[in-house]
Write a protein that binds this DNA or RNA. Structure first.
Lengths: 224, 224
DNA sequence: AAAGTTATGTGACTTATGACACACTTCCCC
DNA sequence: GGGGAAGTGTGTCATAAGTCACATAACTTT
C-alpha cells in the first residue's frame, strides 16, 4: 500500500474526514508528507503556529503541557493510526500544548497551506467540513454538559476506557495525572480505584493500572 | 436603509459573520427574505429540518422545549437584532427546540440552500467560516470545562448577566427555569438569590428578577 | 370569593468530593 | 546502601449542593 493510501485510511477513521468520498480523500492524501522523529524529539511546543495536521504512522507521540510548578503533565498519547491537530490545520491558531515523540516515530504531515488550497479548489469539500465542524459543535455542547455533570466514577471509567483504546488493558499513567484528566483530586481517584480493585475490575501497580474487567468498566462508563 | 442593509448589520454583530468583508456581507445579505409571524405563531418545532437562519427584525421569538412532564421551559428569548439558527443553516440538522413568536414579529430569513450556494461560489468565505467554527470549538471546549467547574454562584451570576444583555435589568424568568439553565436545583438557586437580595444586588418578584447592582454581579461572574 | 395551581421561601438531612495530614512503598541516584 | 523524591493508601474533617418536606404567597379559573 502506498504512503498516501495509508494516510487516507487514517483520515477515514477520523470523524472529521469520515464522510469524504473516496476520490476526495485520495486527492487530499496526495498532499501529505512524512516526517521522522527520534525518541524524545520535540514536534511542536505550546505557542507555535498550528500549521499542520499530523497522523501517526508508527511510534508514539505524547501531548503534554508544562504545569506552573515546572512538572509536566501528559494530556494524551497518540499511537499509530491516531490523528491530531485537525482543528489547528483548519484555523491556524497556536498550539495549546507540547508534542514530543515518546519513541522513534514516523508521522504523516498535512500542511495547512496545502489543505486550504485544496479546500479553495474544492468548495464542496469545504462545505462538508463545515457540516462536520457543526456536528462537532453540537456534539460538544451536548456531551460536555452531560459528562461534567456525571459523578466521578463515571468520568473515571470513561477516561480509563478511552485510555484502554490507546494502550490496551495495561494503562501506564499515575493516579495524579488521571486526576487531572477527570478533574478530580488524586485522593478521590485513589479511593475509587481501590473500590474497583476490591471488585476485581482492575489491579493497581505503581504508575500502572491493569484493566481486568472491561465489561464492568464500560457498564459503569455508560452510567449503569 | 434597505432591508438587506439592515440584515447585514445584524449579521455583522454576530461573531460568526463579524469577520466577513463588507462586500461579502452585502452579497450574502441580498439572499435574505422576510417573514411575518403573528403573536403565538410557531416558527419551527423540535425535529423540523434546520433549513434556515433567522434574524429578528422586530418582535420577540421564544426558544423553548417541551419537558418530559408536558411543561414548557423557555431556553432563550430572541429580540430585535438577535440571530438564531446559525449552526443549523450550515449543517442542516434538525431543530433541537421549538421557536414561537412571543409577539407579532418580523424576521429575516436566510435559507440554507441559498447560503450553501453562496459558499460554493465563494470558497474564500467558506474557509473563513471554517476558521470561525474552529474558534468556536476551541472556545467551547475551554469555556465549558472551566464554567462547569465553577461554583454555583459564579454560574448563576454569569447567566443573569447574559440574560440582562437581552432583557435589561428586569429579567423575566422563573427560578425553576434559571435552575435548568445553570444545571442546579431550584432550591439552591433560590437560596443564592436570597443571599444576593440581602446584599442588595437584586430584588425578587414572582417570575421576575430585578438586577440592582450589575457591578457586583459581574464581579461575581468573573469569579471575584 | 372559593378553590386550585404555580412560584417561592426555608429548614433538616444526606451525600459526594475536596482538603489536609501522614504513613508507607518503590524507585533512582550518588 | 543511604537518602531523597515520587507515587500511593487511608483517616478525619469541612463544605457545597442535592433531596425531601413543608409553609406561604401570588396568580387563575370558575
Amino acid at each position: 500500500m502506498s504512503k498516501q493510501a495509508e494516510f487516507a485510511v487514517i483520515l477515514k477513521m477520523n470523524p472529521m474526514f469520515a464522510d469524504l468520498g473516496a476520490d476526495e480523500l485520495q486527492r487530499l492524501s496526495n498532499l501529505c508528507h512524512t516526517q521522522h522523529l527520534a525518541n524524545g524529539e520535540v514536534l511542536f511546543q505550546k505557542g507555535d503556529a498550528g500549521d499542520a495536521l499530523f497522523g501517526v504512522r508508527r511510534g508514539q507521540v505524547r501531548i503534554e503541557t508544562g504545569a506552573s510548578d515546572g512538572s509536566r503533565l501528559t494530556l494524551n498519547f497518540m499511537g499509530p493510526g491516531d490523528l491530531f491537530g485537525e482543528v489547528a490545520v483548519l484555523d491556524g491558531q497556536d498550539r495549546t500544548a507540547d508534542a514530543t515523540a515518546g519513541e522513534a516515530s514516523e508521522l504523516f504531515v498535512l500542511r495547512r497551506e496545502d489543505f486550504l488550497g485544496f479546500l479553495e479548489r474544492e468548495p464542496k469539500v469545504a462545505i462538508k467540513i463545515i457540516s462536520l465542524l457543526c456536528q462537532r459543535i453540537r456534539w460538544q455542547s451536548e456531551r460536555m454538559e452531560e459528562s461534567m455533570l456525571q459523578p466521578l466514577p463515571v468520568r473515571l471509567a470513561r477516561r480509563l476506557c478511552a485510555l484502554a483504546a490507546d494502550f490496551g488493558s495495561e494503562v501506564h499513567i499515575s493516579q495524579e495525572q488521571l486526576g487531572v484528566f477527570v478533574g478530580a483530586a488524586r485522593e478521590s481517584v485513589n479511593r475509587q480505584l481501590q473500590a474497583w480493585r476490591k471488585e476485581a475490575i482492575l489491579d493497581l501497580q505503581r504508575g500502572r493500572i491493569l484493566l481486568r474487567n472491561m465489561t464492568k468498566l464500560t457498564a459503569i462508563a455508560r452510567n449503569e
